[in-house]
Every structure is written in C-alpha cells, then in structure tokens.
Design a protein around this nucleic acid. Structure first.
Lengths: 199, 199
DNA sequence: GCCATGTTTGACAAAATTGTTAAACAAAGG
DNA sequence: CCTTTGTTTAACAATTTTGTCAAACATGGC
C-alpha cells in the first residue's frame, strides 16, 4: 500500500503513546512498540530514525494538546472556583487516559534534553498565568482562599490532583485495604481538593 | 584487608543509596556503583549477587528508617497542627537528603515485586493511622480543618509535600523563572501547606 | 505497465550489561 | 606460619538492544 504515508506514522505514534503512557511500559523496546502497532521494527526507524526521537515527538505533541486544553478552561468567564473545578476535570481526564504519563515524566527527572524541549517561554503562557494569579488574589482578598503566594496555591492544586495518581501503587499499598477503596477515594477526590483550596 | 566484612558491604549500600537517590542516577550500572564505592564490580556480586537485590535492600532499609521516624513524630503529645508541622519537617528532611527517592518510586510503578516488599500490614501501623484519623476528626469537628474523609486529608498532605519535589524540573520549567525562585518557593512551602490544610 | 512510496524480511555490527568463574593477592587472627 | 576472609584482576558467555542495510514485495497513482 502506498497511500498510508501519514497514516502509519500517526498510527505508530498513537501506539507508542498507548504503550508508554496508558500501559506504563516505559522500557518497551522498539520491537515491542512495532509489535503493538502491528508493523515491522524497521519501519519505526524509517519514520523516526531512533526510539528516542519517537518518544520525544509523542511526548511533545501530547503536552501541547494538554496545555491548550488547560488554557481554554482557564479562560472561560466562569467563577474562579468553577474554573478550578473544570481544570481539575481536565487534568483528571488526562490522567484517566494516560495514567502513567506523569510517572514517566517523574522518572525522566534527569533527562535535561526532555525538559529543555518541554520548556515554554510563550508570552501567551506567561500572560495566562499572570491573569490566573490576579484572579486568585481577588479570591484571597475576599477570604474565599487562604492567603499565600499565588504560586504556592498553584503548586498545591497541581500536587493534590496529580500525586495520588502518580503514586497510586505506593498509596494503595500503604493506606488502602483494596483497589476498590482506592478507586472510591479517587472518585471523591475532586470535592476534597475543592474543600481544601476554598473556604 | 580482612576485617572489612560488614564494613564494605555497608559502604556499598550507602554508595548505592547516594548514587540512586541523592544523585538520581536510576540507571547506574553495577560498574558505576562499584566505581563510586571505590571497589571492584565483582565485589558487588560477591555481597549482593545481583544489582536488583542490592537495590531492593537499599530501598527497604531506607523505607524502614523513614517509616519509624514518621511514626515517632506522629506519636508526640503535641497539638495536631504542631504534629503535622513536624511531619512536614521529617518528610522535607528526607527529601533534602534523598531528592530522587520518590521519583524513583514513581518510576517503578510497574515493579509489583517492589511494592509487594514495601507493603506493610503491621497492626501497629494501622493503629497509628487510626489514631491519627481520630485526632484529625476532632480537628474537623472543631472547624480547624475542612470536613472530608480523613484519607483525603492524608492524601492532600502527602501530595503537597512530595509532589513539588518529585516534579521539580517540570515545575521549574513551567512556572518559575529561575532555580533561585524555585528554591525560594520551597523554603516557604511549609507555611503554605499549613495554611491550606488548616483554617 | 511502470514508478514512487511504503513496507517487510532477514541479516548484521556494535555496544552495553549482567552474572559467573578461576586465579591470584592481602592481611588479620589463630 | 598457615588459614580464612575479603578483594582484585581478567576473562568469558550470554543476552539484549539499537541502528543500519540491502533486497524484495505491494500497491496506488501516473
């Protein structure tokens, strides 16, 4: 078949995404990825030249999609709390789709090359954060959020959403009796986070 | 030298701990560890038979030390908030000593063998958590802590302490202008966490 | 029908790593 | 002094993985 050009390339990327970030097989070999995609290993190199480049592409593209979605939801006309609530949803959706993505990022803590590429110096991005912080400070002034550096609030927010997922096995083994109990807790997570961030 | 028996074995373990969890070189080879310890690679196998076993031992022992220290501080006669404050200190101390430990755990999310070994079914451990929860519920009743499942509070607490460290490169690149700004934020972290957990 | 592109097959070199073994060496302790 | 234990040296087999290559095959588009 000659027409598959972009098709297969994309299919391989999607497969890699699934293998790495849905199944969490961070050490999957090129062979395993090719098998999962139902193509020959040589084809991976044909399109991506190396395993590293494939992984990098997949990661960058995913990050881009996610970043955009977060920005969208941070820019609605909703109340601040409602906005946070939606951002939690977006994040949790991603986490449900790619439960191992953040774990992978955590494991790549030393891959400076990776972080270099994920860096975003957008003016736009910075402006969004600034706007977000301005709104947040109004909330603090109004007493609906505990007073602190906006950055600390942001760290708290991200931490509470992401950590329990990244560390699921540790949390499950340390504090929960069963997988079921953990799933139950996760379903109640959003409300708990909101109760903690707002007063 | 004949008398080094337990000495060298320990020295290797300490070195491995440093290489893995202080320097974060998760993929360090047996050769690299041996070099760092100033001994021959064969000696590693002499003492530990395999890289995996060495790593496992190091991890288990470290976990044990940490667990004990946390329990100590959870059992003092201090006020609940003061107790939490101390637990944050203990955790942050560990994090300063072994900045890559949690990242490593996150990266091993699939190593069921590891989690099996880290599991703790202690009656004692469970009792400690139960006591902690009882105290926490008093705090909620008194309105000093937002009402929620105690387990959610625990997740919040651990998340906010641990996540910013695990994800340091991501956070630094995404939200901070400089390493210095990040370090500054970390030094103010404890107060921010307490303000968020208590009201 | 032919060409370009996508795709498979099979094979290969090169490197990295692990675990093992045999032999020698060092030195402490009896 | 001799034995035991710890330690090094050197070499080796086995395995895994990566990236590359040449050749053949398939097929859609011209």
């Amino acid at each position: 078949m000659a027409g598959k050009d972009k098709g297969t390339e994309n299919h391989i990327k999607e497969t890699a995404k699934a293998v790495f970030f849905k199944e969490g097989r961070f050490n999957a070999t090129t062979q395993e990825i090719a098998d999962a995609a139902g193509v020959n290993r040589t084809l991976l190199h044909y399109y991506f030249r190396s395993r590293e480049i494939l992984l990098e592409k997949v990661l960058l593209e995913g990050q881009e999609v996610f970043r955009k979605k977060m920005n969208e939801h941070a820019l609605t006309g909703l109340s601040f709390k409602e906005k946070i609530s939606q951002l939690i949803d977006v994040w949790m959706d991603r986490v449900k789709e790619f439960p191992y993505l953040d774990s992978y990022l955590a494991s790549q803590i030393h891959n400076t090359n990776l972080w270099e590429n994920l860096k975003m110096n957008d003016k736009e991005q910075r402006k969004n954060i600034a706007d977000f912080f301005a709104e947040l400070q109004e909330e603090m002034a109004a007493g609906r959020v505990a007073k602190m550096e906006p950055m600390q609030f942001l760290l708290n927010f991200i931490s509470m959403v992401s950590y329990p997922v990244i560390m699921r096995p540790l949390m499950e083994n340390s504090f929960f009796n069963s997988k079921k109990a953990y799933v139950q807790a996760m379903s109640e997570r959003k409300e708990a986070i909101l109760s903690t961030l707002f007063r």
